[in-house]
Amino acid sequence: MTDKDRPHLNYGIITNLIEENSTVLDLGCGDGELLLRLMREKNVKGRGVDIEERMIMLCISKGISVFQGNLDEGLKDYGSKSYDYVILNQTLQVTHKPILVLNEMLRVGKRAIISFPNFGHYKLILQLLFRGRMPVTKDLPYQWYNTPNIHLCTRNDFIELCRENNIKIIREIDIREGKIISGFLPNLRATEVIFILEKESV
């Protein structure tokens, strides 16, 4: 995912979730803007991981410590509970092995913060229903044949996955076009969801 495609709208929301002076590992950190904001506003000690050479160069040029690597290889060389937070922002849907990545995040981080586009949003459903076409929206701007998003899911799918894997949901934040919403039918109304997760080490 390129930096242009990456919705920066949720950076403020994620920044608010993190305590001052925390240690943060940002997986799929892109151009490093979220980390930069966390470093400036919350004095976090952060580092990023991304697969793209161009993104790594952008991060280094901002003075951010980064590692060029593939999330699907897991985080085996990272110590257990070695970060306060591991963030996966708008990246879960492009990983090949989302469950591996999720479990690794929860091993390495005391908590995980994960955000993804909610495929259950009513506009997507209506596009499919009335046009009979794969949905294309502002948040999911790709055609079926060129999308990097190979593992899309709905809010409800994700909650079910957490239940099956004994992952504890500490907090859920439903977002519509960059703003937090509350109330009924989040699976239909949220364009994006953020979860704070925890898992006891086995």
Partner: peptide, 16 residues
Amino acid sequence: VFSMMKSGRDVSYIQL
């Protein structure tokens, strides 16, 4: 690089 990280060193790694 992983070894550096394990030891708490600040490191950036890029493969060009």
